[in-house]
């Protein structure tokens, strides 16, 4: 069996020959038993493969992600932004008062997570991730003229993927992330582990 015949039969089987090649191959099929046999083998292989048993998948219980309760502040950039952390606590306090956040007794434990990104010259920085089902971009606040942008979150312990957008353009990865991973669209997601 010539390798070229194997290639040819395989491409014929896949419907990838152009019209002229297809006609030439079919002409050879009429007179060459080994080609017909090869084609039959390929067809038989395909039929057998399609008849392989399909197993029942184990049941998956899909998660709920968001919740709220107080934990410790997890700062990504150290004490020089402690003032901002305090401001965030005030905001959380306001949120409690207005019912935006639920009390500790109402929800499972969560931890604070601060995202900090350095983007001097940017007009806007935002974040989107699986902590909000990738549904809406959440803007980061400009820290000062030094180029730092921040946002605070409260998340249940777990691993969270996100991307940062600077002036609406996706950035490859957050250097402050725990690690960066391929996403499922040919790009990169940053990953942070909260409370693990």
């Amino acid at each position: 069996m010539k390798t070229s015949d194997l290639d040819l039969a395989s491409r014929y089987f896949d419907g990838e020959l152009d019209q002229a090649q297809k006609e030439a191959f079919e002409k050879r099929l009429l007179s060459e038993d080994h080609l017909r046999g090869l084609l039959e083998e390929l067809k038989g292989l395909d039929i057998s493969a399609r008849e392989l048993e399909i197993y029942k998948a184990p049941e998956i219980k899909f998660p709920r992600i968001m919740g709220a309760r107080y934990g410790h502040i997890r700062s990504r950039i150290g004490p020089f932004l402690a003032g901002v952390a305090a401001a965030a606590c005030v905001l959380v306090g306001i949120g409690m008062g207005t019912g935006i956040f639920k009390t500790p007794s109402q929800e499972l434990r969560t931890e604070a997570f601060r995202i900090v990104y350095y983007a001097p010259g940017a007009d806007s920085v935002s974040i989107v991730g699986d902590f909000n089902d990738w549904s809406n971009e959440i803007p980061l606040m400009r820290r000062d003229k030094g180029g730092y942008w921040i946002a605070d979150f409260r998340l249940k312990p777990g691993e969270y993927r996100y991307v940062l957008l600077v002036d609406g353009e996706e950035r490859a990865g957050d250097p402050m992330a725990d690690y960066v991973i391929d996403d499922d669209f040919g790009s990169k997601n940053s990953v942070v582990r909260i409370g693990l």
Partner: peptide, 13 residues
């Protein structure tokens, strides 16, 4: 499968 299904679920949007 469990992890992949979670990831897909979270990324469905």
């Amino acid at each position: 499968l469990q992890e992949a299904a979670y990831r897909a679920y979270r990324s469905r949007n």
